[in-house]
Simulated scan of single mutants.
Amino acid sequence: MKVLVTGGGTGGHIYPALAFIRTIQKHNKDAKYLYIGTENGLEAKIVNKENIPFKTVNISGFKRKLSFDNVQTILRFLKAVRVARKYIEDFQPDIVVGTGGYVCGPVVYAAAKKGIPTIIHEQNSVPGLTNKFLSKYVDRVAISFDASKQYFPKSKVVLTGNPRAQEVVEAAKKSNGNRLVKLGLSSAKKTVLVVGGSRGARPINEAIIGTLDEWKKKDYQCLYVTGEVHYESVKKELEKVPTLNNIVCVPYIHDMPQVLSEVHLLVARAGATTLSETTALGLPSILIPSPYVTNNHQEKNARSLESVNAAKVILEKDMSPETLLKEIDTIIGDDANWESMRKGALSIGMQTAGDKLYQLMIQLVQQR
């Protein structure tokens, strides 16, 4: 089987694509792959490290307001379609799967027009322009949130979940339970994981720094992932509190699935991949959605968890050190509340998401 995968721009599009490729490898060791991204996108760096054949097209997104740039975007799109068509003719894929981002547009469109089975995977509760456009041409639309089905043709929608969810569950089963100990934390205390994303999130960092004196009094501990950008400045603030021994600060976590399986509460933004991971594991969360994303989709993602009591949502405009610490106490300090939130998360977790997407792919290939 030959599978062409495309997706890029952010980790939220790339990591589900890679998780899906690993799922295929689990089921079919002889499958061959081609990944199409952009030369300057994050995918160029990440996918090449995975030793997956990688090709590029040049594409950008549409401006939401009328702009001459959109004329140039249309021209780039048409050229990218021609380039993608050549890659497709050379590779001869059995199926093409797009996981989001501008690059999916010309690649999936070219494949659909050639009559090749196509799937797009939508991670967020509110889809972007590219997937809305492609939904008219593809065979199936795989979604991660039930709320997003309203944006797509009903006959094409299949709720599969995010492949990253299954990957995290499988990693948790293999965990030896000592990742936190290696980071300098206790295995006997409840742990709050605070993450601002790979580049950090200033409001979250400021709120944690504002609570340092209070953390000394807590019987739980914190693993604080600052992001590379903020690490040195946050580390200096921690060093000003010499008796503070229940917070460990790191710039980045490379093996996040193992860490997630050992903590009791997550404080983070509300990216789709993060939420798929936490719900699959039954991990309660406090979510601070980024207000700077398209269509405010992070808040909508977060509200879908809040609606089943899997998460508490704090808007960035309402964020303060006191508010954040109060919510942490309310969850970590109340076993009944924590258990209720765990069950809420599990109620919408998609622990076999990768396998469901794989089965959908096989079904389409066999129908060809």
Rank of each mutant, 00 (worst) to 15 (best):
L244N: 04
V138D: 01
L238Q: 10
A111H: 02
I52M: 06
K156Q: 09
P289L: 01
A31K: 00
S285R: 00
K79Y: 00
Y137K: 11
D94P: 06
P321V: 14
R342F: 10
S290C: 12
F145Q: 03
V263S: 00
P203N: 11
H121N: 08
Q258M: 11
T118M: 06
K343V: 11
G105R: 01
L244M: 05
R164S: 13
T279P: 00
K236I: 13
D334V: 10
A311N: 08
V194S: 02
Q123S: 14
Y102N: 04
S307V: 10
I332W: 09
A142R: 01
Q351A: 15
I116D: 00
K190Y: 00
G354P: 04
R64G: 01
H297Q: 11
L212Y: 03
L281R: 01
D90A: 13
S304K: 15
I14D: 00
V365R: 06
I288Y: 05
E327Q: 12
H121Q: 13
A345F: 09
E206S: 06
K45D: 13
K189R: 13
S187K: 10
R82D: 08
A270K: 06
K2S: 15
I95V: 15
T191I: 09
Y102S: 05
A336D: 10
L223Y: 09
I332H: 12
A207I: 05
A111Q: 06
D213C: 02
N246A: 05
T191V: 02
T323P: 04
V313C: 10
L180N: 03
Q258E: 13
A172F: 00
L283E: 03
L78H: 13
A84F: 10
D94M: 04
G61E: 02
N245C: 04
E237A: 15
V195C: 10
F68Y: 07
A19P: 02
V158T: 09
